[in-house]
Write a protein that binds this DNA or RNA. Structure first.
Length: 614
RNA sequence: GCGCCCGUAGCUCAGCUGGAUAGAGCGACGGCCUCCGGAGCCGUAGGUCAGGGGUUCGAAUCCCUUCGGGCGCACCA
């Protein structure tokens, strides 16, 4: 947990406590600490305290040992009405809050705010665009897209919960040589089939055409190598590359592909028609996947619509001398003259655009059309260097908003056997994985509740399976590479999405039983340590959400939720709720209701559905 | 060759501008249903935080270095 400061603390109950304590501590510090500089930490469990004030920083000003300072501060704060105990423990001043006052304020806040508890207006002036998923249209979505989608959705929701306006977009890579490949494959080997006639999803069908293309090209290459008398595997890397270039130059299939691309660029109506048809197949497939996953977009950008832009921007910059001409005529952004990055080509020698050409164009379109204060790019870590170059290039062009571009970088997803390679077929397909999740969740349900009707199984299983996958991706830090083993990565027990869902469902069941038999007490009593510990953790929720949003890191929220649910598990085990005696009963029901609210709000932010019954 | 990231328990990972006895989950072993849902709860074993230096009152965290891994490096997308 991050240190609590005036700036980081969110939520009325915690803010009230904090500002009171910060004032008291500042007053007792002989002017050495300003209220704005007071930093408290959550006290470790073994101390039996709630919050702690570390006295190391004061030691410099007071020229005393931290332990002595803690002693002195303890006497100064001894009579504070918000503290039930205040004791020095070595260099720390440990603070125990009065449970009555704090507990009352906190439960009142949560019960009154309900779904809004955890949200704030800290980012109310922000207009943020988040670009995520951004698929190619020549193959179906895979595991990597799933991590991207799940992370992007959670970040979008977190930022929106802080009052920002969030636009979710993607850039659909729907043109270029890879698209021409699937098109050529369809012309040559498609024999008039359609996804409907074959009964497959459109994106899968186009993906299979792309695979066919690569297979045929490989055959041609083998024949060519044999004819040339080349033992390819015996070559060193550099020679391999040269050989590849020679083959690509002489390949009939490659030549046909390039010609198809040229006709597409020239606007050849027959080619365009085929392209539109195949695109529609793919988009229908993507939509089905997004729908099942629960992902949506406010706006799609298509590479085919923006790839021609950007050239004027580049020409202008060239005229002004911002960009340079390479000896062979390519246009270069001279990044090395302004920083540590290497120069980047922004236009080919033949005048055609590169990926960065359209990225420059798209970035300007986004800021111009939406008046953004920030533009986020949810893209894997392998693009770190490229994103730095893109940002630096835009800064070089004089766009002030370039500093408001954020690369929301995340770690790679590997399989146990290594990197996914679609050309070699070892990819985990998104649709197949979701199907597998459904199956596993259904089996788990049947095993646990043999009498559950099939309709109920069918209704609950998808939510449980997706929760497992989503939480698996979100609970680790976003920069951490993930090795995804389909056999072991999906679990329903322990630190998992279904564990959180289960805890929620169990609470929902309790509250149904107690419905109508209680009302929130004016003055709840949270005297039991576990009651109080739970309340204290609930109080931190809005702060955790704000921190996760500001650091673009849902794992902070995910970890928090696990700890919270673990605390609840212990509390639930040790204390009766529904059949407890009053007045404890009402207090505990209010506490449990608050817990339910926090779990529901937290999972919602992560993109995980809760279940009233599981 | 250069740049960025990483190396923490058998496995998968937390550890948030340096701070209290380095924490979870899985796996292993042992407990817990006359009681609100056992996808649960409790306990035991398991770590010279890759190795070596340094800075500091204090280092898993910062600096240097060695080793080991990943990603990337101007006309691919």
């Amino acid at each position: 947990m991050k240190a609590l400061t005036q700036d980081s603390v969110v939520g009325t109950a915690l803010q009230t406590v904090f500002s009171h304590l910060a004032k008291s501590l500042a007053n007792a510090s002989r002017g050495a600490v300003d209220v704005a500089d007071v930093a408290l930490s959550v006290a470790p469990a073994h101390t039996g305290s709630d919050l702690a004030f570390p006295c190391f920083k004061l030691a410099r000003d007071w020229k005393m040992k931290p332990a002595q300072i803690a002693e002195e501060m303890a006497t100064a704060l001894a009579d504070d009405p918000l503290l039930s105990a205040c004791e020095a423990a070595g260099p720390y001043l440990n603070l125990r809050l009065t449970r009555e006052a704090v507990g009352r304020d906190l439960l009142a806040e949560i019960l009154q705010q309900g779904d809004a508890f955890g949200s704030s207006q800290r980012q109310r002036d922000e207009v943020v665009m988040l670009e995520y998923v951004s698929p190619n249209t020549n193959k179906p979505l895979h595991l990597g897209h799933l991590r991207n989608a799940v992370l992007g959705r959670a970040v979008a929701r977190l930022i929106a919960s802080q009052g920002a306006k969030v636009w979710k977009t993607d850039i659909v890579n729907d043109r270029g040589i890879h698209i021409a490949k699937s098109m050529l494959a369809y012309q040559r080997w498609g024999s008039g089939e359609t996804p409907e006639s074959l009964g497959v999803k459109g994106d899968h069908y186009v993906g299979s055409l792309y695979v066919r293309y690569e297979q045929e090209l490989k055959k041609e290459k083998q024949a060519w190598l044999q004819a040339e008398g080349i033992d390819y595997e015996a070559l060193d890397e550099a020679t391999k590359k040269k050989t590849d270039d020679r083959f690509n130059g002489s390949s009939e299939q490659m030549a046909a592909t390039r010609e198809l691309l040229q006709r597409w660029e020239a606007g050849d109506e027959a080619v365009r028609q085929l392209w539109r048809t195949m695109n529609q197949w793919v988009f229908a497939g993507f939509d089905a996947t997004y729908c099942r996953l629960g992902i949506d977009f406010d706006k799609h950008y298509y590479e085919s619509e923006i790839y021609l832009g950007g050239k004027e921007i580049i020409q202008n910059a060239l005229d002004k001398g911002i960009f340079k001409l390479a000896p062979n005529g390519a246009v270069i952004a001279p990044l090395s003259e302004h920083g540590k990055l290497q120069d980047k080509a922004v236009l080919r020698a033949d005048g055609t655009g590169l990926y960065i050409t359209q990225d420059i164009n798209l970035a300007t379109i986004k800021f111009a059309e939406y008046g953004l204060t920030r533009s986020l790019y949810c893209i894997a870590t392998e693009q770190n260097y490229y994103m730095q170059q893109l940002t630096a290039t835009l800064a070089l062009l004089g766009y002030e908003w370039a500093s408001n571009m954020v690369h929301l970088s995340y770690g790679m997803v590997y399989l146990p056997e290594g990197r996914m390679k679609s050309r070699e077929g070892n990819v985990v397909d998104a649709d197949m994985l979701m199907e597998e999740l459904d199956t596993l969740a259904s089996e788990a349900l049947r095993q646990r509740y043999p009498d559950l009707p099939d309709t109920e199984v069918a209704q609950r299983a998808p939510a449980i399976g997706l929760a497992a996958m989503t939480f698996h991706f979100l609970v680790v830090g976003k920069d951490t590479d993930i090795i995804f083993d389909p056999k072991t990565s999906i679990a329903f027990e322990g630190k998992t999405g279904p564990y959180l869902q289960y805890s929620y469902a169990r609470v929902a069941s309790m509250l149904r039983k107690a419905a109508g038999t209680w009302q929130a007490p004016e003055q709840p009593s949270l005297e039991e340590d576990l009651e109080w510990q739970l309340a204290l953790q609930l109080m931190l929720f809005p702060t955790v959400v704000a921190d996760a949003a500001e650091s673009y890191d849902p794992s902070r929220l995910a970890s928090y939720l696990v700890e919270l649910v673990q605390t609840f598990g212990t509390f639930y085990h040790d204390h009766r709720v529904v059949d407890a005696e009053e007045p404890a009963r009402s207090s505990r029901l209010a506490l449990v209701t608050s817990f339910q609210t926090v779990v529901r709000n937290g999972l919602e932010l992560l993109g995980i559905d809760v279940l009233e019954e599981m």
